[in-house]
């Protein structure tokens, strides 16, 4: 494997009493797409800000594209692109003016610019709106414009903070297409998201909770690591079933999932025992299938284990 694009060691950031990121260490390989996943307040934004060189770490360091973010935060800025969570472009500039502004800041050769802008328009489909003020775009188009501004200088590393937050499903798919295209072209990326189902699109997933790294692996490996059974179940009286299951010491969680219920069993538990308990309560089970654990199941389990391990 090549030298990692990012090498994070003991990265910590405090805000007064609050530790937003605690002793984070991980490597990101060149050309890898890493998903930074966790609920609000997990430390995703703080981590990305430090990696982008806009927030100095309290302790630790990260070597980003060969440069230390603690001592030389400006050194790698022309090779990376950072897209903040909050829309950070100028709402009172047009689509094209925004792109040209960032092209100037990143010193994109002027002769290349018309061609690059055309390509950005081609995949973002923003061409027809180039004279529209950024503030008048829809949420999805705004994010696409943000990505266009971030990509105009062909960065080697993308740091995207919740790029799909509040974006309609179609635009969301477009955004991921763009990101995957870049990865295929050799770009490295860290993308944060609070949506668990999006994490499955990443090469690896880093779970963050309360500033700590609670899990780091490929999505499938994480799902396999749960070590507990997940059962999708259809019963005749789902509400009563939920009440019964909540009482059961064998079931970790039971959540309605469309017409069915989704059960995560305790590690030591056995499905037949749960089934027997439900039938003893007079419920009729129409269907029961073993299911693949979702990343959400894994995340919840990892957080539970972390909480248990704490004194």
């Amino acid at each position: 494997m090549d030298k990692p694009a990012i090498s994070i060691r003991g990265l910590t950031r405090r805000f007064d009493d609050l530790v937003a990121v605690r002793d984070l260490s991980l490597d990101v390989a060149s050309g890898e797409l890493l998903g930074l996943v966790g609920p609000d307040g997990a430390g995703k934004t703080t981590t990305l800000r430090m990696l982008a060189g806009v927030l100095p770490p309290s302790e630790g360091d990260a070597i980003v594209l060969g440069q230390s973010i603690a001592t030389r935060p400006e050194a790698m800025k022309s090779d990376i692109a950072y897209m903040s969570q909050r829309f950070g472009l100028y709402q009172d500039l047009t689509v094209r003016e925004n792109i040209e502004f960032y092209a100037d800041l990143y010193a994109v050769p002027r002769v290349d610019l018309p061609d690059r802008i055309e390509r950005l328009y081609a995949f973002s489909r923003l061409g027809p709106f180039e004279r529209r003020l950024a503030g008048d775009l829809s949420g999805g188009m705004k994010q696409k414009l943000g990505l266009c501004c971030a990509l105009v200088h062909r960065p080697r590393l993308l740091l995207l903070d919740e790029p799909t937050f509040g974006v309609d499903p179609i635009s969301r798919r477009d955004l991921w297409l763009i990101i995957h295209e870049r990865i295929a072209g050799g770009t490295t990326a860290i993308v944060s998201t609070a949506y668990m189902e999006e994490a499955e699109r990443c090469d690896r997933v880093a779970f963050l909770h309360e500033g700590r790294l609670v899990g780091l692996d490929e999505p499938r490996a994480l799902q396999g690591s749960l070590g507990a059974d997940v059962v999708e179940l259809e019963v005749d009286r789902p509400r009563q079933a939920l009440v019964e299951l909540a009482r059961s010491p064998l079931v970790r969680s039971a959540t309605p999932f469309g017409d069915s219920l989704r059960l995560v069993l305790r590690r030591e538990a056995d499905w037949s025992a749960v089934r027997a308990a439900l039938e003893a309560a007079g419920l009729r089970i129409a269907r029961a299938d073993a299911a693949r654990p979702s990343l959400e199941d894994v995340f919840v389990e990892l957080v539970r284990r972390m909480d248990e391990a704490r004194p």
């Binding site: 806009v54 692109a81 903040s84 909050r86 950070g88 100028y90 800041l105 990143y106």
Partner: peptide
């Protein structure tokens, strides 16, 4: 205040 500075300081400007 508008959040544009966060983007600006991430550039090599």
């Amino acid at each position: 205040e508008r959040g544009t500075m966060e983007q600006l300081v991430a550039t090599p400007v």
